[in-house]
């Protein structure tokens, strides 16, 4: 996937934070990475992609960021169950919004969520893995875009 295809993901993640929390996120310049393990935070949501493109979309965020987002949504409970659910929902929303660019054949799975930082986190053997850094409320998360044409 070429870097110009990332704009839809940058717009989607920025819109997510603005719409959901009322506070803008700062989305940094995407960069290429070979090993994504160092970009994995406390909670991670993973969506598999098939159809017109194949690969995955990963959103990984620290626990404190997910707690604050839940609170901004007007919800009082920030149990682990809610934080895991939220990280999957962010990933689902960003991936679903990408259909605006890629169309109805951009198929997304329901999210898988994981807690913690595995020693080796491999997304796939697709060459171009882009990291999109996000800063919100002085906390840092990462959107990992790992796609190629089918």
């Amino acid at each position: 996937m070429q870097s110009r295809g990332l704009i839809v993901f940058i717009d989607a993640i920025a819109n997510y934070f603005t719409s959901t929390t009322g506070t803008e996120a700062i989305v940094g310049t995407p960069f290429l990475a070979k090993d994504v393990t160092e970009y994995i935070e406390d909670y991670t949501g993973i969506i598999g992609i098939s159809g017109s493109k194949k690969g995955s979309i990963v959103f990984s965020a620290p626990s404190r960021m997910m707690c604050r987002v839940v609170q901004c949504m007007g919800l009082s409970s920030t149990r682990e169950e809610e934080l895991m659910d939220l990280v999957g929902e962010v990933c689902n929303t960003v991936s679903g919004n990408a259909r605006r660019e890629f169309g109805e054949n951009f198929n997304i799975t329901v999210p898988i969520t994981i807690k913690g930082k595995p020693e080796n986190f491999a997304v796939s053997e697709i060459t171009n893995i882009f990291i999109i850094p996000i800063e919100w409320s002085r906390l840092r998360a990462n959107l990992i875009v790992n796609l190629e044409d089918s």
């Binding site: 719409s19 009322g22 689902n92 929303t93 259909r99 109805e104």
Partner: peptide
């Protein structure tokens, strides 16, 4: 739904959905 493509929207409406709100929403 987060699925914002026209085909999904049209399909849902044809089947009987009455309205469509895109995620994320305020």
């Amino acid at each position: 739904s987060a699925l914002v493509d026209k085909a999904t929207l049209i399909n849902a409406m044809k089947l009987g959905a009455y309205g469509f709100l895109c995620k994320p929403f305020s």
